[in-house]
């Protein structure tokens, strides 16, 4: 070990000790101080009841499958619609001008209205037209509301990605004789999508959570089921169970996304 390595090893040891000490201090403070709060016994009884946790967990996990299903159909639809809107907003040909206007209005509306309001308006409004089964299902129209909203978000992220690709890339492509369409498809879009992947991954994590908003219009998914248990058992622990289940999915999903990104970056440099 040379001088520099010895110094850096010592530094690393020191940093590790400091980090461990300060973390221990914070944890100890929380564990010791929170129970001193006057309401702690009541909070513990109504939020952290072990028996209720065990009793409600299996049903809540099953209800969570509905969230997963809604999420799973929504994602491909969002990707397709978001891409279509992003491309519509970038269309330059005069004949496509109406598409451009449509794209801009679409994004303004669905980005400007709170998700939960869109879910109410579409989830209650469209079935109100008296459509026959199964087209009056709140599952369908709630999902549509999520898809419309998140497509607007994704479209904006994609568009910023497309605009961030330097003009020299487009020039190089059209100088080879590629059409505008092929230039977008083979040169610009693949780079843009890659560049905004982290932002879009965050969008998907947000979507995964927002699926729970559909509980307001009917489907008995996890949040709704937790609400039912809360009333039934007069205890808030089911909400904590729901939170734990969400975290069990979203935390690994985010970490996995980061891992994929790093791998992609390492492969190309």
């Amino acid at each position: 070990m040379n001088r520099r390595q010895a110094y850096e090893a010592a530094e690393r040891r020191r940093a590790l000790i400091v980090a461990a000490l300060s973390t221990g201090l914070v944890v100890a403070a929380v564990v010791l101080l929170v129970p001193l709060a006057p309401g702690w016994p009541a909070v513990r009884a109504s939020f952290f009841d072990g028996a209720v946790f065990v009793q409600t967990f299996p049903t809540l996990l099953k209800a969570f499958l509905i969230d997963v299903m809604i999420f799973a159909w929504s994602v491909p639809l969002i990707c397709v619609l978001g891409l279509a809107v992003a491309l519509a907003r970038g269309a330059r040909a005069p004949a496509l001008f109406p598409l451009r206007i449509f794209g801009a209005v679409y994004v303004d509306i669905f980005r400007g209205v709170p998700v939960v309001l869109t879910i109410y308006l579409i989830g209650f409004g469209v079935p109100g037209l008296g459509l026959p089964r199964p087209w009056n299902s709140p599952y369908i129209w709630g999902t549509v509301a999520l898809v419309l909203t998140y497509s607007a978000y994704i479209a904006e992220v994609l568009r910023s990605g497309i605009e961030s690709i330097h003009a020299s890339q487009r020039n190089a492509a059209i100088c080879l004789g590629l059409s505008e369409r092929d230039t977008m498809r083979y040169v610009i879009l693949p780079q843009a999508v890659r560049r905004v992947l982290p932002a879009n991954m965050n969008m998907l994590v947000a979507l995964q959570k927002d699926v729970a908003l559909l509980s307001f219009i009917g489907p008995v998914e996890i949040l709704r089921q937790a609400g039912i248990y809360k009333s039934l058992l007069a205890n808030f622990t089911p909400y904590v169970v729901a939170a734990v289940i969400f975290l069990a999915i979203t935390v690994p999903a985010t970490r996995y996304a980061d891992h994929l990104l790093n791998k992609d970056r390492d492969a190309r440099s």
Binding site: A172, I174, G177
Partner: peptide, 14 residues
């Protein structure tokens, strides 16, 4: 353009 090749200062590879 397909009949006229051009190479730029900044390479511009994809």
């Amino acid at each position: 353009r397909r009949r006229i090749g051009i190479v730029f200062q900044s390479y511009n590879l994809f």
